[in-house]
Simulated scan of single mutants.
Amino acid sequence: MFFTHFGKYLILLKKVFKKPEKWSIYWKEIFLNMNNIGVGSLGLVGIISTFIGAVMTMQIAFQLVSDLIPSSIIGQINRDSSILELSPTITALVLAGKVGSSISSQIGSMRVSEQIDALEIMGINAPGYLILPKILAGITMVPLLVIVSIFLALAGGLMGGALSGAVTPAEYITGITSDFNGYTVAVALVKAFVFGFIITSVSAFQGFYVTGGSLEVGYASTKSVVVSCITILACDYIITAVML
């Protein structure tokens, strides 16, 4: 069953990346999806990232109880954890639930209402027209959301440490600025790019092949979130093993 679905997924991607009939039609859809995925998710990602940064600072401070370890190391650990793992992965999992389910439901509803069949009858490449703008928007906006998430997680760590007394702002800033390795940001952006592609393509695949009615659309939406989350975590492990 896995290879059957994976084969259908690859065949769909081949149709998606077929040369568009008119790019002018696609640009409007691309910017619309960029707004939905990026701007529409900015508030949720910001709130989650800020609180995660604050909680991580307090937890790290709780575990580092030795007087031999400087308090500035708290900021350094929080910085590397946020850049390499927390911001890319948690942002992707949140977007898989919010954006992925929306994409699957939207395309699934078009399938059961025969709108996709109507597009194909008119000679329009339905996979390309419906899915390609979402994928391009995903691989563009998810890395930007991850960058915002990293900054807000670090800011949240600063506020959380100052309010709880776990670390002073000066020590925290010293920690996040010392021994910084820019390669960690490159790893985070690679993860974000791959995760953006997974969220949009997997969700669109689940919705595109829905059969039945509105009940099956709901099942496909749930399945898209589950499959996307599992795939994201598997790719997270692979990218980490290869790049680090």
Rank of each mutant, 00 (worst) to 15 (best):
L86I: 15
I139L: 08
S214V: 00
F6M: 11
I60T: 15
A155D: 15
T240W: 05
A192N: 10
I116M: 01
L189M: 07
A220E: 06
T240N: 13
A153V: 00
Y237D: 13
L244H: 14
M1Y: 03
E216N: 05
T91A: 04
E216Q: 12
V39A: 07
F3I: 12
T57K: 06
K191Q: 08
V194Y: 02
S105N: 09
L144G: 05
I77V: 09
S49T: 00
S24M: 11
I103C: 03
G160E: 13
S87F: 04
M34Q: 01
L68A: 09
T89N: 10
Y219F: 15
F193V: 02
N36D: 14
G138P: 07
F51D: 14
L13Y: 04
V142F: 02
Y237K: 08
Q115D: 07
T200Y: 01
F17W: 14
V167I: 10
V146W: 02
M243F: 08
Y237H: 08
K14V: 06
V217R: 09
S105A: 10
G128A: 01
F197L: 14
I47F: 14
L215Q: 15
V148M: 14
F62T: 14
T140K: 07
L163Y: 10
Q206T: 12
G157W: 03
A166T: 10
G40K: 11
V94F: 03
A61R: 08
A118C: 07
L95S: 02
F62P: 13
L144C: 03
A126P: 11
C235P: 13
L68P: 12
M58G: 09
V226S: 11
F51P: 14
A96E: 05
